[in-house]
Design a protein around this nucleic acid. Structure first.
Length: 448
RNA sequence: GUGACUAUAGCUCAGUUGGUUAGAGCGUCCGGUUGUGGUCCGGAAGGCCGUGGGUUCAAGCCCCACUAGUCACCCCA
């Protein structure tokens, strides 16, 4: 300030902006989010799933133990920081770990099993952004916890597929299906896999040399040419799958066939999270493959134990909303706009303006989406604005109308108008708009 | 985390080998006689040329760093 000599030069205010990869959702895109959320809510509710919201922030352990330290998500993509008590906390990078934490913490094993939950939440991963990848992104997902049966896996895949269908993008994706085995068969397989690679380490890329120690299964889906050649020669998991897993997988495929859902049996898909066992699946872009997977999931029977709970089976699915929107736009899927305005109210003179405010309230209470030109001056400016809103009807009130107790109703497409008594105007507008088009909001449904 | 490319008005973009007050279209706002929209016409507002340094008599333009964006790799949604 003036008496502070060190502060003579006004510091320039920097324009504020979003952190890398974290974006505003502007009104036009919100119409997609609203629509997708609605589809997800309805499909999940119909199937008996109930909604859960776990916190955006969890103690880092929840993810480190749940997702697994050898995964890319935990290894390099977590949005982790210390809170004021020096506890390490992390913005959730995925949904399942938090849901299982919540299931255990709230004793949901006492509920009728399986517990079927869904969520629609923002998630965070500290990645370099690119197409379809952001540091904050939305996912919806479902979890079926507490029971194990291939029919449940089939139901989850079916639900995911139907949601994609409702969104108009199901045909763009193929379902890649695999069974990566239970603890028993996988342990044996891992051993043999590691043995296979002994002495061949130098042919592997540096990432894969790492994987060999931490997560040998990932060796199989490395895209480097040399690694792929070795992966082809490596022992195949199919031969190690125990009879139980074999049977489970076969049944799942029968159920999917029964549901009429097409899938590709793909032994190469592994998934990037440690908690998966048995069934895994991904929805792949039929043109671009895994690079633009829209969602995926699988069975995570060991997860509850990793998090300190009793052994609890589970199967789930999650999909990325931004990627869905990108595909809906690519397919030119139009979503219904909930924001279309029914009625524009134009007014001239303070007396008319006074009458307009309560009139607009009455219209809105009836479910008529109404905007007024409360700050505009001339009738021309107001009608121009009405035109921008693309309203079918404009109500006009001036001093004359106030005196006569009428409101002028102007049909914008025909350019015709007529006076209507002010006490009849709300129902008259309802007739014009159509009862079925009203934006109904019913606090009356609640029981006080 | 690695690499490539990019950054001028709200949006899409011009801007000459570095040379005066920074340009267009769209959009926004206001007008085109009394209280009537879309088309048309006129006008205005809106830019520290992403930020900070450097080179130069002179930088939107050249150099460096940072920030952000786009795309790819890694991996995933």
């Amino acid at each position: 300030m003036a008496d502070d000599p060190t502060d003579q030069q006004e510091p320039k205010l920097r324009k504020l902006q979003n952190p890398t990869g974290i974006h505003d959702i502007l009104p036009d895109d919100h119409e997609y989010y609203t629509f997708i959320k609605k589809v997800v809510r309805h499909r999940c509710r119909q199937a008996g799933f109930r909604r859960i919201t776990t916190p955006i922030l969890e103690f880092t352990d929840v993810f480190e133990r749940g997702i697994g330290g050898a995964t890319d998500i935990v290894d390099k993509e977590m949005y982790t920081f210390l809170d004021k008590g020096d506890r390490s906390v992390t913005l959730k990078p995925e949904g399942t770990a938090g849901v299982i934490r919540s299931y255990l913490q709230h004793g949901m094993k006492e509920l009728p099993q399986p517990v079927e939950l869904y969520y629609i939440e923002p998630h965070f991963r500290y990645d370099r952004p690119q197409k379809g990848r952001y540091r904050q992104f939305w996912q919806f997902g479902v979890e079926v916890i507490g029971e194990k049966d291939p029919a449940l896996d089939a139901q989850v895949i079916d639900l995911a597929y139907r949601i994609n269908e409702d969104l108009g993008i199901a045909h763009l994706f193929s379902i890649q299906l695999n069974n990566i085995g239970c603890g028993k068969c996988r342990t044996k397989y891992k051993e043999d896999l590691v043995n296979f690679y002994i002495g061949k380490e130098r042919s592997l890329c540096s990432d894969c040399q790492n994987r060999l120690e931490k997560n040998p299964l990932r060796l199989l889906d490395c895209k480097k040419e040399d690694c792929q050649i070795l992966a082809e020669l490596a022992p195949k998991f199919e031969q190690y799958r125990c009879p139980e897993c074999q049977d489970f997988h076969a049944k799942l495929k029968e159920f999917l066939d029964e549901l009429g859902i097409k899938y590709v049996d793909n032994p190469r898909i592994v998934r990037g999270l440690d908690y998966y066992v048995g069934t895994v699946f991904e929805f792949w872009d039929t043109n671009q493959g895994a690079q633009n997977a829209i969602g995926g999931g699988g069975r995570y029977d060991g997860l509850a134990e990793l998090m300190g709970g009793q052994p609890t089976p589970g199967v789930g699915f999650a999909a990325g909303i931004e990627r869905i929107i990108a595909n809906m736009k690519r397919e030119n899927v139009k979503v219904p706009s909930k924001d279309d305005i029914h009625i524009f109210v134009a007014q001239l003179g303070d007396d008319a303006k006074k009458k307009c405010l309560p009139l607009m309230n009455k219209l809105r209470d009836r479910g008529i989406k109404t905007v007024g030109a409360l700050g505009k001056g001339s009738m021309k400016a107001q009608l121009r604005l009405a035109d921008k809103f693309n309203v079918p009807y404009t109500l006009i009130m001036g001093i004359t109308e106030v005196r006569e107790g009428v409101v002028i109703v102007r049909d914008m497409s025909k350019g015709q108008q007529r006076p209507v008594p002010i006490e009849e105007i709300v129902e008259e507008v309802v007739k014009l708009i159509g009862e079925e088009n009203l934006d109904k909001y019913s606090p009356g449904e609640a029981i006080y």
